[in-house]
Design a protein around this nucleic acid. Structure first.
Length: 319
RNA sequence: GCCUCGGUAGCUCAGUUGGUAGAGCAAGGGACUGAAAAUCCCUGUGUCGGUGGUUCGACUCCACUCUGAGGCA
């Protein structure tokens, strides 16, 4: 059986991924599947740079507005299962599936056979968190005893991952590492896709300038009002969605803890840090074909021509 | 014109009785399997404002000088 082929567009935030992927979709009869951990939330539009209907130019988009902000259980695994159905649907209709987004783990969940362990268990997690907070060294030592492989991979201070690894063992009696190791191993057994990966990037200084500019644009488009509306719902700040950049900093302004000016600077800084982490993630992926889009307007047409040709060949290739 | 306090890493500043410097932030690199826009790790050579002097040796003392802030006239 022929493997299912898809196209992915990745790269740091503010790198023209949205515009490029929509233009590409127009040329290759494609539909977009977002791979963005914040755009899945209903009501988080401006701050997540979710493409507007106008920007989408009639191209169908999937994996946007999938869950309400107060879902505590949305996860990579859930993303994978929902996105997989969306992609299958697109492919069955004979169209090209274009996965676009900056959440590297989400892209890998679709393009590598990652084997996820047991789902999050609130009880187990709470007790493992308590264990870690009470004595981090003991918690780490315990992990080393039940799962040396995972323990040696993690730093003692990595509370989140140590707690998760302990939680998995607590719930399943099996070490996390037994569920499928690195990106080379199989173990998931779920639907996977073979990707053609386009990576967009630009000079770091230029990227940071664009980020600053885009944050100002978001504010001009009404980010404060959007955040205030969410703030007014009184959701728990511990919800993953509530920690998104652009929102969590504004919540502090509403709390009276800081000024809008300071929050704006913080949003810019946090976004730059985020972009840097995204690059660290994507740079190690040898499958990506990188393109410098520092002067996007100038290269746009040539690059679209080239990448749409590549895409067509990729999708038509028989095995 | 005089007095006082400053001028040390991109920024804010430490620097002990003289032995050629170190924190936070920024910046750079890395990790990443059900919270991933999260979480975590690693990386500090800079004419110590300038010139000259004392000294075996000066960011540290002295002189002159440039420069910033404040005060007194």
């Amino acid at each position: 059986m022929r493997r299912n082929r898809i196209v992915c567009v990745v790269g740091p935030t503010a790198c023209h991924k949205t515009e490029f992927s929509i233009s590409l979709a127009e040329r290759v009869n494609g539909e977009i599947i977002s791979a963005d951990s914040v755009q899945v939330y209903l009501g988080m539009d401006i701050g997540s740079a979710k493409p507007t209907l106008e920007e989408r130019r009639g191209i169908p988009h999937h994996m946007l507005d999938c869950v309400p902000i107060d879902t505590p259980e949305f996860s990579v695994s859930q993303y994978r299962s929902m996105a997989t159905s969306a992609i299958m649907d697109v492919l069955l209709r004979g169209k090209t599936a274009i996965v676009v987004g900056g959440s590297g783990l989400y892209v890998n969940a679709l393009t590598y056979p990652l084997g996820f362990a047991v789902p999050k268990d609130e009880e187990a997690r709470k007790s493992m968190e308590a264990l870690y907070d009470h004595n981090p060294n003991a918690a780490y030592a315990r992990l080393a005893m039940i799962d040396l492989e995972t323990a040696s991979r993690l730093h003692q201070n990595d509370r989140k991952r140590i707690v998760r690894a302990l939680e998995v063992f607590e719930c399943s009696g099996k070490p996390l590492s037994s569920y499928g190791g690195d990106f080379q191993n199989t173990g998931g057994g779920e639907a996977l896709f073979e990707p053609l990966l386009f990576g967009l990037n630009m000079d770091r200084a230029l990227l940071y300038k664009r980020i600053d500019l885009r944050v100002d644009q978001m504010l001009a488009r009404g980010l404060v009002e959007e955040a205030r509306k969410i703030y007014g719902q009184g959701y728990s700040r511990n919800l993953p969605a509530m920690q998104s950049i652009g929102y969590r900093q504004l919540f502090r302004v509403f709390d009276g803890g800081t000024t809008l000016e300071q929050a704006t600077e913080q949003i810019k800084l946090d976004t730059r840090h985020f972009a840097k982490r995204q690059l660290t993630w994507f740079r190690r992926d040898p499958r990506i074909r990188w393109q410098d889009v520092g002067d996007y307007e100038a290269i746009r047409n040539d690059y679209l021509l080239e990448s749409s040709e590549l895409t067509k060949r990729w999708m038509d290739e028989k095995e």
